[in-house]
């Protein structure tokens, strides 16, 4: 196992632990500033109002229909909060090269029953994504300095969800890099 990990956090708070950190805001609150920037859309109609020159576009899932609409739109890069996630969604994600986000904060911010349900959904998402070769990204989702997690913690999170060590490492660096480069 390596001692130091190269990592890119696609949704997090700037930290020295990562090579690059993308700060994500809601599309309504977006204002241009330095560094990597991303926006999150919550409804399909917001896809029309995405500002130009954004590094990463996130779409927040919620229902099967909404997820499929987002995955077919070709305007988004990452589907966050992907559950409910079925085999068709996984196939769309693989074909349209939309990454599926596994956010650490969803586990950290919940407890007991809700945490168990979220873990179940995420484990199911990982199984489907692995079967259909859909890209997966691990993000911290941190909003302040205290919440920042190290890349090793993200790899551990990926392993808990059912990824192999190498897959978890790829989800922390290789795939986020590809997402930023637009899967060229």
């Amino acid at each position: 196992m390596q001692r130091k990990y190269l990592a890119i956090d696609l949704k997090g708070y700037p930290s020295d632990l990562f090579e690059d950190v993308c700060q994500v805001v809601r599309v309504e609150d977006f204002s241009r500033s330095g560094g990597l920037q991303g926006v999150e859309v919550t409804a399909p109609f917001q896809l029309r109002s995405i500002p130009k020159g954004i590094d990463v576009v996130f779409a927040r899932g919620g229902s099967i229909q909404k997820n499929r609409k987002f995955l077919n739109s070709k305007k988004i890069d990452v589907l966050s909060r992907p559950y409910p996630f079925d085999s068709l969604c996984a196939r769309y994600a693989a074909d349209n090269r939309v990454a599926v986000e596994l956010c650490f904060r969803e586990i950290a911010a919940t407890t007991r029953y809700v945490r168990a349900r979220v873990l179940t959904y995420l484990q199911k998402t990982v199984t489907l994504a692995k079967k259909y070769h859909a890209p997966l990204v691990l993000t911290s989702g941190s909003t302040c300095e205290e919440e920042v997690v190290s890349p090793r913690q993200l790899v551990a999170f990926g392993k808990i969800l059912g990824l192999d060590y190498s897959e978890a490492k790829a989800s922390v660096y290789t795939i986020p890099k590809k997402v930023l480069e637009g899967f060229e």
């Binding site: 001692r3 650490f104 586990i107 950290a108 205290e146 919440e147 920042v148 997690v149 190290s150 090793r152 913690q153 790899v155 551990a156 999170f157 392993k159 808990i160």
Partner: peptide, 24 residues
């Protein structure tokens, strides 16, 4: 990995805010 996750999920100790960061 399970222990690293458990350490990451510590948010408060004795009702006071605290976070744990894994160094190595």
């Amino acid at each position: 990995d399970e222990i690293i996750m458990c350490l990451s999920l510590v948010h408060e100790i004795e009702n006071r805010k605290a976070h744990i960061q894994v160094k190595g």
